[in-house]
């Protein structure tokens, strides 16, 4: 196997980059993460299943997944839009807006949580408009979704932006000169190229949303079966000094989000291949 690739690939640095990547990954991420598996293995299989499928925990997964999915979806659409406007149009204040985008990363999640809860509370700057229509935002799943939208906003934008900037204009120009309409150019030429970064951004925003704790815990209200999120269940297990139970839920979350990431990465690979073949 290796020999075959060696012949084909003249580029150096396979060993070095593999070495650094694996070593760093192992020390910082993989070995520590393996601790959740070791710790939860103290439970028997039966107890493990009982904990991770209990009614309350199950509801918490459902809420975490639903809110993270919706938030990531909204961010995928608006992230694409924002990246497009920032790269393709020139307007005053563009640089400042560009800078703004990273704000959710820079703000400590707790500050974001406190701020959003106050803003969307029933007397808050934004919440009062919604309460006119009797829509409650803070302490409902909508509030959780909004917090996750805030947290995940930069992902898609920052994924799409560099790709869009590097995209070769010649192809679009050629398409235009061949009489393709704007919609056709976007759908047939630009969009396929942007799909992988959009998917990547979506998957990251989704995965981040699943695990988010700091900001959500303020706005969620933590009502059992209604607005309890999965990370909160982990915290509540820990508070009972039940490390094994906490890590059991952690294992389930880890596995699920890892599978999500793999699926999306494969999807991306597939979409790239697909695009390559159709050219």
């Amino acid at each position: 196997m290796k020999k075959k690739y060696k012949k084909k690939n003249v580029l150096p640095g396979f060993g070095l980059s593999l070495g650094i990547t694996m070593l760093y990954m192992s020390l910082i991420v993989l070995i520590p993460l393996s601790m959740v598996f070791i710790e939860s293995s103290q439970l028997g299989w039966h107890d493990f299943i009982k904990i991770v499928t209990s009614d309350r925990v199950f509801h918490a997964y459902k809420i975490s997944f639903a809110t993270a999915f919706v938030a990531a979806l909204v961010n995928a659409v608006f992230g694409l839009l924002i990246a497009w406007v920032l790269v393709r149009y020139r307007f005053p204040g563009k640089r400042i807006i560009d800078g703004f985008i990273d704000l959710p990363f820079a703000l400590p999640t707790a500050v974001a949580g406190i701020t959003l809860t106050t803003l969307y509370g029933k007397d808050g700057w934004l919440g009062q408009f919604f309460s006119l229509f009797h829509i409650k935002i803070a302490f409902t799943p909508i509030g959780i979704t909004i917090a996750l939208m805030f947290i995940g906003l930069p992902f898609v934008v920052r994924m799409v932006q560099p790709v869009l900037e590097n995209m070769e204009k010649e192809v679009e120009e050629a398409a235009a000169s061949l009489g393709a309409s704007k919609q056709q150019i976007f759908l047939k030429v630009i969009f396929p190229e942007l799909l992988p970064p959009v998917l990547a951004g979506f998957s990251l925003a989704f995965a981040r949303g699943l695990g988010e704790y700091g900001s959500v815990v303020f706005i969620a209200g933590n009502m059992p079966m209604k607005t309890e999120i999965a990370p909160f269940m982990i915290m509540s297990k820990l508070e009972q000094f039940d490390y094994a139970g906490a890590t059991a839920i952690a294992v389930v979350m880890l596995v699920i989000s890892f599978v999500c990431l793999i699926v999306i990465n494969l999807l991306q690979k597939w979409s790239r291949k697909h695009e390559f073949q159709s050219e």
Partner: peptide, 8 residues
């Protein structure tokens, strides 16, 4: 990407 997905 896993560290993104892991709850802090």
């Amino acid at each position: 990407e896993l560290p993104f997905a892991v709850s802090p």
